[in-house]
Design a protein around this nucleic acid. Structure first.
Length: 919
DNA sequence: ACTGCGGCCTAG
DNA sequence: TAAGCTAGGCCGCAGT
């Protein structure tokens, strides 16, 4: 195995070897479909722009020379002159960070020493890139003012804290003298717990730099003495907020929103530009206008998305190492967001390469030239988004290490800020949800790295994450057929064999673009950034919590509430949802399914559950509240009603869900497919966000856990599903004139499956709808039970394991066969088991032929026992999914299942399924 | 043969 | 320093 990973290669081991057949050797055959596709791009190009043309079939023997002007399309459109006195600058911000730098004269904020400066990168409607330095915003946090504190004490407090922080510094390499910029008294209230709207004095402590917040907080916590006050320990508020988030919340900027710099309010940098962007400007942080993503500001700028893929020539059987094995090709495709096709298609090759219609081939004689030129290409194209498959953990690190080995000194400047070197770091990211994940991180200021593999790992549960498998799954398309083991041979062949490799490489750069488009990743992620208010990059690099924090802070600020810093400590788990004991069996009658829509969010809204409404022990008495003022939840926790105070979380949830309703309504009306996609992405983001609020309150090792909220939510849920069962079973009875006594045969968390005793799907739908409406009337809005679907027939195997034919749109034909929890949907089974069970289920549910299912199972098992089935079908996916990353990175072979999945076990699986079917 | 437990993955 | 939640089936394994 010479070079590439991620090629869904053949399993190792004897039995499957024979099936390989089609390896290299026949590369003189007719052009592949992909080549024809490339050629079509060429034709389209010619039509649209005769004069320019991409000279797509050109082969450019670059050799020692490289000019960034080789192709006029590489550069962004010429930027019109910008006059800050008469022109307003409007751009969509896509990346936001901060740096420490010297203050710029005329800008607000400290003028001494290094100051934190927010930097926004973005693109204008005309496709010009912008780098905007935002000045004057400084980090801060709060502490409650001690008793007796007045404004007379401010300067003393400030002085003492400043000197304490200075003394605490191990080294003061910036030679700072001022660490505490300001201390002010403000009227605030803690968001944790209801205490009678008791607004109190808080000290707002502004620090010179973000990294000074933590030591200041620690010193104040440890016990701090100043002036006449005794030594005391201060709890802190909002001292754990990322500086970017702090800025965005305070300036009402959300991720990927449009920013307007009004004329006369900003300055243009001509000389002393530090970025490669076309416009570089300075602005005071209060001068910029942030537009909410509504109306015309829902649009997306023509961002440049660059996808690339590299090939390296490894040694036989050794995974390529950047210190030893050369990079031989880099294919790149660049597409403007919203367009259908990439407008730049190019491949950089080492040694000569025959032409490829529809793409530009640049040939280099020296690898170092190839690398340097590609870096130059990236800077020239000035991509906003960089994508590819596993670029984060393979391609980019490899290129960087290779360039370092070859001492290509100009290579590692891939960001948009001049002079900032891209360096590699290791990071480990750990969460209960995703386990520990080791990642490499490469800084590329101003460009968003959008590794498709990472997106898929986050958002999709797949059996295999190889590019080939993923492409097949989503696009019904596969990679070009080149075995990775022959890559080195292709390279060492002639310009024809290298051409074949280049086509392969181009396709690997093209597929991520196609997938990005098909899955609407860019749009969906942007909408998520807009809805939750975090920068786009956070969505791939951070967890769920930061999104809730961002929303919480925004809502809290409106009401003068501040968020406490809590020390994380794990405690006892709390009780979750109820799963109704299933009446296992095969049902040849329609089963109606009723669901509470957005159960947990609607519980929180209906009962006003929030940090700000929680009555802690003794609070009710202390505040003299009457029983009408608050409720007692099923877990015995107390919360004030919205008549006393409306909670923040219900507010957030209402905003999210009403925005979702709006998006769905607009979606219905919209005809433009592109705008439709945006709206659909938005409603999805809104739904996900609403659902993650509950999880946030229950995250014990989190930013602000509140188990009273989360356990009350699940407590209400348990009560509701129980009550729903009772209601349905008490109303739909023979005694009440119905055909039969209804029976809830199963239910999980927010749903009940009801046998209504009707014999047709359409009747089940009618009664189901009616029942849902009637049950809903017993609950506080916005809690609502909805009719969702009918299963007919229905096979209930166990808790969380069932299958059925799913009817919802029509009562005549089923939409699909729905399988939950069964081997067919689990990724820890070999495909043979999944396929066998799937076929059996189909036979049982669609053909209604359980005997046939048994016969089929027996046949497969006997085939297996007699070695009539290719053992390669027994390849397991368990290893693969667990270490999907390493798999993709190393092209690890999957193992044969013999050790784990013996035929006998398949028998067991099948037999556990079939008895339920009344054999 | 049974039980308890950890690992894995799913349902919701 | 950063990390959404619990319920629960089923497998393999160790101990009795």
């Amino acid at each position: 195995m010479d070079a590439k990973r991620r090629n869904g290669g053949p399993p190792r081991g004897g039995a499957s070897q024979a099936k390989r057949g089609k390896t290299g050797g026949d590369w003189e055959d007719s052009p592949s479909i992909f080549e024809e596709e490339l050629a079509l791009f060429e034709e389209a190009d010619m039509e649209t722009e005769e004069r320019e043309g991409q000279a797509g079939h050109d082969v450019i023997p670059v050799g020692e020379l490289f000019s960034a002007d080789l192709n006029p399309r590489w550069r962004r459109p010429q930027a019109a002159p910008l006059n800050p006195d008469s022109d307003t600058l409007v751009f969509q911000q896509i990346d936001l960070d901060y740096y420490l730098g010297a203050a710029v004269a005329g800008m607000p904020g400290q003028s001494q020493g290094n100051v934190p400066i927010i930097r926004m990168f973005g693109v204008t409607d005309s496709g010009n890139s912008v780098c905007c330095h935002v000045h004057g915003f400084a980090p801060y946090f709060y502490i409650p003012a001690p008793n007796g504190f007045t404004s007379d004490h401010l300067s003393e407090f400030k002085r003492e804290l400043n000197s304490a922080v200075l003394k605490d510094m191990r080294s003061n390499k910036d030679n700072m003298s001022v660490t505490v910029l300001a201390v002010d008294i403000t009227r605030k209230e803690s968001m944790y717990g209801y205490h009678g709207k008791r607004i109190a004095d808080f000290l707002r402590i502004t620090m010179a730099m973000p990294r000074l917040i933590a030591p200041a907080k620690r010193l104040l916590e440890q016990g701090f003495k100043f002036g006449p006050f005794p030594i005391q320990s201060f709890s802190s508020y909002e001292a754990n907020i990322d500086f970017e988030i702090r800025f965005m919340v305070d300036s009402d900027v959300v991720g990927c929103c449009w920013i307007e710099l009004p004329k006369g309010k900003y300055r243009v940098r001509e000389e002393r530009k530090v970025s490669l962007c076309q416009y570089e400007v300075d602005v005071g942080w209060t001068q910029l206008i942030s537009h909410p993503a509504e109306g015309e500001y829902q649009r997306i700028a023509p961002l440049r998305v660059l996808s690339f893929d590299i090939e390296c020539a490894g040694r036989k059987g050794i995974f390529p190492e950047a210190e030893k094995d050369p990079v031989i090709q880099i294919a790149s495709m660049v597409q403007r967001q919203g367009e259908k096709e990439p407008f730049i298609r190019t491949v950089f090759t080492l040694q000569s390469c025959s032409s490829i219609v529809g793409s530009q081939v640049l040939c280099f004689t020296k690898e170092s030239q190839l690398l340097q030129s590609w870096a130059e290409f990236v800077r020239t194209v000035d991509a906003d988004i960089i994508t590819g498959y596993n670029i984060q953990n393979f391609d980019l690190p490899y290129l960087l290490n290779r360039a370092a080995t070859l001492k290509v000194s100009l290579f590692p400047y891939l960001g948009r800020v001049q002079g900032i070197k891209s360096v590699l770091r290791d990071s480990s990211f750990q969460s209960k949800q995703m386990g520990r994940r080791e990642n490499k991180i490469l800084n590329m200021e101003g460009r968003v790295q959008f590794d498709l593999l990472q997106v898929l790992l986050r958002d999709y549960k797949l059996r295999s994450y190889t590019l080939n498998a993923v492409s097949f799954h989503f696009l019904q398309e596969q990679k070009e057929d080149v075995q990775h083991s022959i890559i080195t041979d292709l390279q060492n062949g002639n310009e024809q064999t290298r051409r074949r490799l280049a086509v392969y490489c181009l396709k690997d750069a093209y597929l991520p673009l196609r997938l990005l488009q098909k899955l609407m990743c860019v749009i969906n992620y942007m909408e998520m950034a807009r809805v939750t208010g975090v920068p786009l990059t956070y969505l791939l690099s951070r967890g769920q919590q930061i999104k809730v924090v961002s929303q919480l802070l925004r809502q809290a600020m409106k009401q003068g509430l501040v968020m406490p810093v809590v020390k994380p400590e794990a405690g006892e788990d709390y009780t979750g949802a109820t799963v109704i004991e299933p009446e296992k069996g095969y049902y040849s009658v329609p089963i109606a399914t009723l669901d509470f829509s957005s159960l947990y969010p609607s519980i929180m809204m209906a009962h006003n559950l929030c940090y700000t409404t929680l009555l802690q022990k003794g609070s009710a008495e202390k505040l003299g509240l009457t029983p009408e003022d608050f409720i007692k939840t099923p877990t015995g926790d107390l919360f004030v009603k919205s008549s006393v105070r409306k909670g923040l979380l219900p507010d957030i949830l209402e905003d999210l869900l009403s925005a979702r309703k709006k998006a769905k309504a607009e979606l219905k009306k919209e005809t433009d497919p592109f705008k439709k996609q945006v709206l659909d992405g938005r409603q999805l983001a809104l739904k996900i966000s609403a659902n993650s609020v509950y999880g946030f309150t229950g995250a014990q090792v989190g930013k602000l856990p509140c188990l009273e909220i989360s356990q009350s939510v699940t407590g209400f849920g348990r009560q509701m599903i129980e009550q729903t069962k009772q209601l349905v079973e008490s109303k739909y009875t023979i005694a009440n004139g119905y055909q039969a006594d209804a029976k809830v045969i199963y239910g999980d968390t927010d749903s009940v499956m009801v046998k209504l005793g009707v014999d047709t799907v359409s009747r089940a739908m009618e009664v189901g709808r009616e029942a849902a409406e009637w049950v809903s009337s017993h609950f506080t809005p916005p809690i609502k039970l909805e009719f969702e679907k009918v299963y007919y027939p229905y096979l209930l195997i166990n808790k969380k394991r069932y299958a059925g034919l799913y009817f919802s749109s029509s009562s005549d034909t089923h939409d699909k066969m729905d399988c939950k929890g069964i081997e067919t949907v689990r990724r820890d089974n070999c495909t043979l088991v999944a396929n066998l069970i799937n076929t059996c289920l189909q036979t049982i549910l669609i053909d209604r032929d359980p005997q046939g299912a048994v016969a089929h199972a027996k046949e497969v098992i006997s085939d297996l026992l007699c070695n009539r089935i290719d053992i390669s079908q027994l390849v397991i996916t368990k290893e693969l999914t667990r270490t999907a990353q390493e798999y993709a990175a190393k092209q690890a072979h999957v193992e044969l299942a013999e050790s784990l999945w013996k035929p006998i076990q398949i028998k067991v699986v099948v037999l556990s399924l079939l008895p339920v079917v009344n054999l």
